[in-house]
Computed example of a mutant assay.
Amino acid sequence: MRLMAAKNIYFIPYGQDDPEKKPTSMVARMEMLPETVEAAINGYQVQPVIIERFRDFS
């Protein structure tokens, strides 16, 4: 959590990949990489950072 409070550190939104079998496992939503990089270049974090992994955002 220290990194989340640090300046100039940006995260690709991430969430649980299998809550039942691996309750502590978190995986980045890599298809959001281009959007996250563009946001980071402009100095802001894509929100929300913690997401529902398999939810369709289309």
Rank of each mutant, 00 (worst) to 15 (best):
I12A: 05
E20S: 09
K21P: 13
T24P: 10
P23Q: 05
E38T: 13
P48F: 02
E38R: 14
T24L: 14
E31K: 12
S25M: 14
Q16T: 06
A40Y: 04
Y14T: 00
I50V: 09
M26T: 11
A39H: 05
D17V: 09
E35M: 14
G43C: 06
V46A: 06
L33G: 05
K22V: 12
E35V: 11
E31P: 06
P34W: 13
I50S: 04
L3P: 03
M26G: 06
V27Q: 08
Q16A: 06
D18T: 02
T36P: 08
I50H: 01
I51E: 00
F11D: 05
Y44R: 05
L3Q: 04
M32R: 08
M26S: 09
R55P: 02
P34F: 11
R2S: 10
P23I: 04
M4I: 08
Q45G: 04
Q45T: 05
D17I: 10
G43V: 06
R53C: 03
K22E: 15
V49D: 00
G15N: 04
R55Y: 00
E52S: 07
M26Y: 13
D18K: 01
A40E: 04
D17E: 15
L33Y: 09
P19F: 00
E35D: 15
L3H: 02
Q16I: 00
D18H: 01
E38A: 13
I51G: 02
P19S: 09
K7Q: 11
P48D: 04
V37W: 06
N8I: 02
A6G: 04
E31L: 10
I12N: 02
A28C: 13
G15E: 07
A28H: 08
V49T: 08
F54G: 13
A39W: 04
V46Y: 03
F11K: 02
I12G: 01
S25K: 10
R2C: 07
P19I: 08
Q45K: 03
R29M: 12
V49P: 01
V37K: 08
V49M: 07
P34S: 14
P19Q: 10
V37T: 10
R55K: 14
L3F: 07
Q45W: 03
M30H: 09
E35Y: 12
Y10F: 13
I9E: 00
Q45P: 03
R55T: 02
I12T: 10
E20Q: 14
K21M: 15
M30W: 09
